[in-house]
Design a protein around this nucleic acid. Structure first.
Ligand code: ZN
Ligand code: ZN
Ligand code: ZN
Ligand code: ZN
Lengths: 163, 163
DNA sequence: TTGCGAATGTTATAATGTTGCAAACCTAGC
DNA sequence: GCTAGGTTTGCAACATTATAACATTCGCAA
């Protein structure tokens, strides 16, 4: 199993979070854009776990911290983070997850476990080329790919088989 | 260009609709489920064009025909049609489109033109196997694939180049 | 024909996302 | 330091998408 399969294994998640934040700071500095307190906090909340978080979940967390936030606050922060490749929106869940490949140019493929809710982001050249080939065959110019696979992760699959 | 690229070309769309309805009737008869008047009308509305239709668009059409419909009416009809593989939900658009491969076991890959709004549903073995291989490599059991590609269709691409 | 499950009607509400405008806040140039 | 201009945030209202709960009607079959 690859190192990127972390979400489906016990791991020191604190490093996931701190790495993500460090990456974000660096990327924003390089791009000369502002990773404000709100934006950073939203990113940190998104990274709380590998389960995608809805915008209103984020909002609730902020509210519970005493942050006087309304929906636009969260959506704007999420837009910013998406724009700069720090989070992805999972269309099939209306939720957001931290990007596991910041910086790299990539087309996320998301494995979404319907049992535990964890999401693993992959990058796979074969998948990517196959999609581009199929689109090319129709003379279609690809701009954005949404690829979300739902099913059972190895852990939940094993549990299920124990029953 | 394949015959399935119809949405991006001028074509006799009436046959799209009548074929879809004929298929639907046959499939429902085979499965011994009821393609009621509302369900059939919703399917027909969805097939009005190759642009996905939102649930509330369908609702509005029904209303304009004097049908006294509320959201659940539409969502239930759409659920039914999805259940039996007659329509697909496009997650990235919150909209529905007629299935172009009824009957066949398939994983829809949708090419969505951001300019004209038309959607082409493809089935591609290479894409499908590549996705399954990638998932297998993580020991993930695939149950459902959402693959939506947005960009520019050949027609809109040509128009754009003329400018 | 009457009973039962499937389908629909109806009302209300939840969940998700957006618009518009005003205030606060950087930051660069003077 | 000041100040002008752009960026970010606060805030209120609103728009869109989807579901819950319960009553009623419909279609079919014993
Ligand atoms: Zn982690
Ligand atoms: Zn990513
Ligand atoms: Zn057509
Ligand atoms: Zn299909």
């Amino acid at each position: 199993m690859s190192a990127s399969a972390l979400p489906y294994r016990p791991h020191n998640h604190d490093t996931c979070v701190s790495d993500a934040l460090a990456d974000a700071r660096e990327i924003c500095q390089q791009k000369n854009v502002r990773l404000t307190a709100t934006r950073e906090r939203v990113l940190e909340l998104i990274w709380q776990s590998h389960k995608p978080l809805g915008a209103y979940d984020v909002l609730a967390e902020l509210a519970s911290e005493g942050h006087n936030a309304a929906p636009p606050t969260v959506y704007r922060a999420l837009d910013f983070l998406q724009q700069h490749g720090l989070v992805h929106r999972i269309a099939s869940l209306n939720a957001f997850t931290g990007c596991a490949h910041t910086g790299e140019k990539h087309t996320g493929m998301f494995l979404i476990c319907r049992a535990c809710g964890n999401v693993l982001e992959l990058t796979d050249t074969h998948v990517s080329t196959a999609i581009h080939n199929a689109a090319d065959a129709e003379a279609f110019r690809v701009e954005n790919i949404t690829l979300e696979v739902s099913g059972l992760c190895p852990r939940c699959l094993a549990e299920k088989n124990h029953e």
